[in-house]
Design a protein around this nucleic acid. Structure first.
Lengths: 201, 201
DNA sequence: GTTAATATGGACTCGCAAGTCCAGTCTGGA
DNA sequence: TCCAGACTGGACTTGCGAGTCCATATTAAC
């Protein structure tokens, strides 16, 4: 794949997005290469032309694609956690995003299929978590500078806890279909940040 | 499968535990029925004799098996959250359990394979979450009765948030291999409970 | 001890889905 | 205009793994 013509790039993108859409609807286990071909009006040779390593490479590309969407979907709020109102607005956006997404999490689906071999999938998720945590931590620091959060609180550790709550809330939603755990985790996490200033002298 | 002889029950159990062990090591995607047969010294006909619906039924049985282990592994601490020391002891046990388990979560693996069809798998997880949350909530109520937690706090909601933090911490550990998020979530959740009494008048 | 149900061995079928191959078409630059 | 390399169609191979079948062995109850 030395160079891609405009047409080639478009085809590659069509395959990628078609695979992502199919996975969002049916999960990874319910996706066959032929499904993707049918949905995107392409042929086997095209798929292997743009993804020489076949299914595995395609799944990895989907993982990257979905990982990027996760953070994008939280902007601009996530990048601007500079007031309690902004935090609340971000919280609502996260809940709304995952409520829309429904019971299937493409990223979890893909990574748990690729599993421990193919370290690439885990690397994608790990990087996503780091970037996500960094953005939250930046918000915590900003509120500390504004005197709204106890300056002794470790921003990274607080962000890690909040992030874990989000992940768990989404995971539970995948089984129960309810977002109540996600909401409880976010609300408790934010409440803890707000209360920290009062608790410390 | 009207009645099982003692020998039959033992064989069934051997197959079940063999499958569970294989999944813990290689994930669901890396498990074939022949793998299980080889590992447990049984034959195809035996597997289909005890699990007439084949792979699907076996996976569901593994899910139940693992779900039971999750709560058992937290006892007796989880059932006796009656002092802050007990909470801390439970927290340590949870972290230790998942640190031992490593990067593969059998339950997540199984449910994400069985997916949205086979509602049974989701039901198993949902029930596990409910029981788990109920035990935590009981601990919260106990501490409220003891005057150690703000009585205005909703125990179920607090338990839901704490549970979400645990799930997310474990999920992140599956990618990163680190338990730091799990620890941060637990510590923050418990700290929030402890601080609640001080915050309210 | 007889008999009916239960337990076991292992060969066989069969379909699916990943991946290969080659022949043919299009595109862009010299 | 021409040609090298990019793009496309689709038939074909291949292997794997779930599930079936039947013959045989074992158990338990009477």
């Amino acid at each position: 794949m030395r160079t891609l013509t405009r047409k080639g790039a478009a085809t590659r993108q069509r395959i990628l997005e078609g695979a992502a859409a199919h996975i969002r609807e049916h999960g990874v286990a319910g996706m066959t290469l032929d499904d993707v071909l049918a949905r995107t009006a392409t042929s086997k040779s095209q798929l292997f032309h743009y993804f020489p390593d076949g299914r595995e490479e395609l799944l990895l590309a989907v993982a990257r694609f979905e990982a990027d969407r996760v953070l994008e979907d939280q902007q601009p709020q996530l990048g601007d956690l500079t007031s309690w109102a902004a935090w609340q607005s971000w919280r609502d956006k996260v809940v709304d995003r995952y409520r829309r997404q429904g019971r299937l999490c493409p990223l979890n689906s893909v990574t748990s299929q690729l599993g421990s071999r193919t370290p690439g999938a885990q690397a994608v998720v790990t990087e996503l978590m780091h970037r996500w945590q960094a953005e939250i931590a930046a918000g915590v620091r900003h509120m500390q500078d504004a005197g709204e959060i106890d300056p002794d609180l470790d921003p990274e550790r607080a962000a890690a806890a909040l992030l874990a709550g989000i992940q768990g809330g989404v995971l539970i939603q995948m089984s129960t279909g309810e977002t109540s755990h996600l909401e409880a985790a976010l609300d408790m996490g934010i409440a803890h940040l707000r209360a920290s200033r009062l608790a410390s002298p």
